[in-house]
């Protein structure tokens, strides 16, 4: 049995500062409290289904429920457009991470730099690298991840879990955001 808070990829042990485990309720509270949250949705959202429901649909429900601006990364614009959902921005993951580490950037809505980043569906290892950048170079920012893989470089992360448990986590989060 994989530990709940072990890095999902075995060798991905960054250093002394590692994420704390996040619950759906905790995630909902952080999203609600944030002044300028941002939601990054990555490529795995296009490939993942939970009980017949696409992770893209979960992403849209979370975005709508939490009223969080969405940055579509990788080729997720395709999935959003098929669902008639208009993300607030499209850019490669590396570019949004670069903007988030820039204290002068005004955010996707031009209202100021973000204070919370929520990640879902980003390829694990490039996502982990991006979270590492933010951990080191964007001290104003909190990062949380909603995947079923524990991300040590995040500020808080959902634990390692099987699909069924993850589905429950996402459903609970969506419920809390309503």
């Amino acid at each position: 049995m994989v530990l709940k808070d072990a890095p999902w990829q075995i060798g991905n042990i960054p250093g002394p500062k590692q994420a704390k485990i996040l619950t759906p309720l905790g995630a909902a509270k952080m999203i609600k409290r944030a002044k300028r949250p941002l939601f990054i949705v990555g490529s795995l959202a296009l490939e993942t289904e939970l009980n017949g429901k696409s992770l893209m649909d979960y992403a849209i429900e979370i975005a709508n429920g939490g009223r969080i601006p969405v940055v579509a990364v990788a080729h997720t614009p395709k999935g959003f457009s098929e669902r008639g959902f208009q993300p607030d921005a499209y850019m490669p993951l590396i570019n949004i991470i670069d903007r988030l580490r820039d204290a002068d950037w005004k955010g996707v809505k031009g209202e100021g730099q973000h204070d919370l980043v929520v990640c879902l569906g980003v390829l694990y290892y490039i996502g982990s690298q991006g979270l590492s950048t933010l951990k080191h170079f964007a001290p104003w920012l909190k990062t949380i991840t909603l995947c079923r893989f524990f991300h040590p470089n995040a500020y808080m992360s959902f634990p390692n879990m099987k699909d069924e448990e993850w589905r429950r986590y996402l459903d609970e989060l969506i419920e809390e955001l309503k």
């Binding site: 960054p14 250093g15 002394p16 500062k17 590396i94 991470i97 670069d98 580490r101 690298q129 991006g130 590492s132 950048t133 951990k135 080191h136 170079f137």
Partner: peptide
């Protein structure tokens, strides 16, 4: 083209 760093190891 500013160097962008993503540390693999914090140590």
């Amino acid at each position: 083209y500013k160097p962008f760093y993503a540390p693999v190891c914090d140590l």
